[in-house]
Amino acid sequence: MLELYDVVELREAMPAEQLPAGAVGTVVHIFSDPSTAYEVEFADADGRTVAMVTLRADQVIHRDG
């Protein structure tokens, strides 16, 4: 299970959010009901948020470091 502020990578592209597969984001909220899901923030190189997406665990890969 992921924890708050874990760094994750998208397994699949999300064209509606303009996020490619492999995009890196940070877990900023964890939902547990009705099932586990993660609010993930994706930012540009300047640190500006470009997308906030709620994702299932199978849509992301935990990244070390």
Results as ranks from 00 to 15, higher is better:
residue 41 E to R: 00
residue 55 L to D: 00
residue 10 L to D: 00
residue 48 R to Q: 05
residue 35 S to N: 10
residue 41 E to S: 03
residue 11 R to E: 05
residue 13 A to Y: 02
residue 60 V to P: 02
residue 2 L to N: 07
residue 54 T to L: 05
residue 62 H to I: 05
residue 9 E to F: 06
residue 26 T to P: 03
residue 53 V to E: 00
residue 39 E to W: 04
residue 57 A to E: 07
residue 34 P to H: 02
residue 15 P to N: 15
residue 20 P to T: 14
residue 3 E to H: 06
residue 49 T to V: 11
residue 43 A to K: 06
residue 9 E to M: 12
residue 46 D to M: 15
residue 39 E to V: 08
residue 10 L to W: 13
residue 4 L to R: 09
residue 58 D to F: 12
residue 17 E to W: 12
residue 40 V to H: 00
residue 64 D to F: 14
residue 25 G to A: 10
residue 20 P to Q: 15
residue 17 E to K: 07
residue 4 L to S: 11
residue 39 E to Y: 03
residue 30 I to C: 01
residue 62 H to V: 04
residue 41 E to L: 13
residue 39 E to C: 02
residue 19 L to F: 15
residue 16 A to C: 14
residue 16 A to G: 14
residue 12 E to Y: 04
residue 64 D to C: 07
residue 11 R to C: 11
residue 46 D to N: 12
residue 54 T to F: 02
residue 31 F to A: 06
residue 20 P to D: 15
residue 9 E to D: 03
residue 13 A to E: 13
residue 24 V to P: 00
residue 41 E to C: 12
residue 15 P to R: 02
residue 34 P to M: 09
residue 27 V to P: 07
residue 36 T to H: 11
residue 65 G to Q: 04
residue 59 Q to C: 07
residue 40 V to W: 00
residue 41 E to I: 04
residue 13 A to R: 09
residue 6 D to V: 06
residue 24 V to H: 05
residue 5 Y to A: 03
residue 11 R to A: 05
residue 44 D to I: 06
residue 46 D to A: 15
residue 13 A to W: 07
residue 10 L to K: 02
residue 38 Y to G: 02
residue 3 E to G: 07
residue 26 T to I: 04
residue 8 V to Q: 01
residue 64 D to Y: 10
residue 28 V to C: 04
residue 65 G to T: 12
residue 4 L to T: 08
residue 22 G to M: 05
residue 30 I to V: 06
residue 50 V to Y: 10
residue 23 A to S: 14
residue 2 L to I: 07
residue 39 E to I: 10
residue 12 E to M: 04
residue 49 T to A: 10
residue 17 E to V: 06
residue 22 G to E: 13
residue 49 T to N: 08
residue 51 A to F: 01
residue 38 Y to V: 08
residue 21 A to E: 15
residue 57 A to D: 09
residue 7 V to S: 10
residue 10 L to Y: 03
residue 25 G to D: 05
residue 24 V to K: 12
residue 21 A to P: 07
residue 61 I to N: 06
residue 61 I to Y: 05
residue 37 A to Y: 11
residue 27 V to N: 03
residue 15 P to K: 03
residue 48 R to A: 03
residue 25 G to C: 08
residue 41 E to Q: 07
residue 7 V to R: 13
residue 47 G to P: 03
residue 2 L to M: 12
residue 24 V to T: 11
residue 50 V to C: 11
residue 40 V to F: 01
residue 53 V to M: 03
residue 33 D to E: 14
residue 44 D to R: 00
residue 33 D to R: 14
residue 59 Q to L: 07
residue 54 T to D: 03
residue 54 T to I: 09
residue 43 A to L: 08
residue 16 A to D: 15
residue 65 G to I: 14
residue 46 D to S: 15
residue 40 V to Y: 00
residue 22 G to D: 13
residue 32 S to Q: 14
residue 28 V to G: 09
residue 38 Y to R: 00
residue 57 A to Q: 06
